[in-house]
Design a protein around this nucleic acid. Structure first.
Lengths: 103, 103
DNA sequence: CCTTACCGTAAGCCATGACTTACGCACGGG
DNA sequence: CCCGTGCGTAAGTCATGGCTTACGGTAAGG
């Protein structure tokens, strides 16, 4: 059921940018806020959602906190999508061949 | 760039239910509205979003209109997720081994 | 220590979007 | 040929959520 959290987490553009930036290298909240057009608390809130979706983890780094991406959320979403993969292919190809037959 | 549309489309629970239901069998708007806790116009609006994301297609069936799922949106999202797959795995495993080494 | 930096949370504001009812249009059946 | 059915769109309402400023708490550094 957590694929729903992953979808809502990645649906927001800002959160997606944060996740993409973390995919290149682990970063602290301050670093992320510096490269994002939103305030630092906003980044914290987004990181909370990303963490709840299993997309990132954090680790204390002295006074700061280092965030890095995690594969759990991605695999969760991937599994969900795979449920439709065969259905979508067969349904759509059947539809195409049907339309070809009509001409 | 259309993976963004796919994410926002599947992020909504009602839209997800509609998509899941269409994955089992093609249906008309009225049929979908009958099995959903929202009104028929709401279903139409959701179908518009799903169509814009490349997740469904429609086909006239006399007086009605038959909707069925399409693989384009799914493959689009899948490609986007694959960009992070290796990064997430390596970053996270590196993080794990680091924590093991610390103990 | 005491101050400074870094972060998370709370409270409040505002825009986006999901839903409803009302309307207009096309197709088929009687 | 008209009436009913099925669908899409418009307009309006209301809640959700993303953003801000303000506050509190913890950890290093002088």
């Amino acid at each position: 059921m957590t694929y729903a959290r992953v979808l809502t987490a990645l649906a927001d553009p800002t959160r997606r940018r944060i996740f993409e930036e973390l995919s290149e290298r682990p970063q602290t909240v301050g670093e992320l806020a510096g490269s994002q057009p939103v305030s630092r608390p906003a980044v914290s809130q987004h990181l909370k959602v990303l963490r709840g979706a299993g997309l990132v983890t954090s680790e204390p780094r002295g006074n700061r906190r280092l965030y890095l991406i995690k594969s759990d959320g991605l695999s969760e979403l991937r599994e969900y999508l795979d449920r439709f993969w065969t259905d979508a292919l067969t349904a759509y190809s059947a539809h195409i061949t049907q339309r070809i037959k009509d001409t």
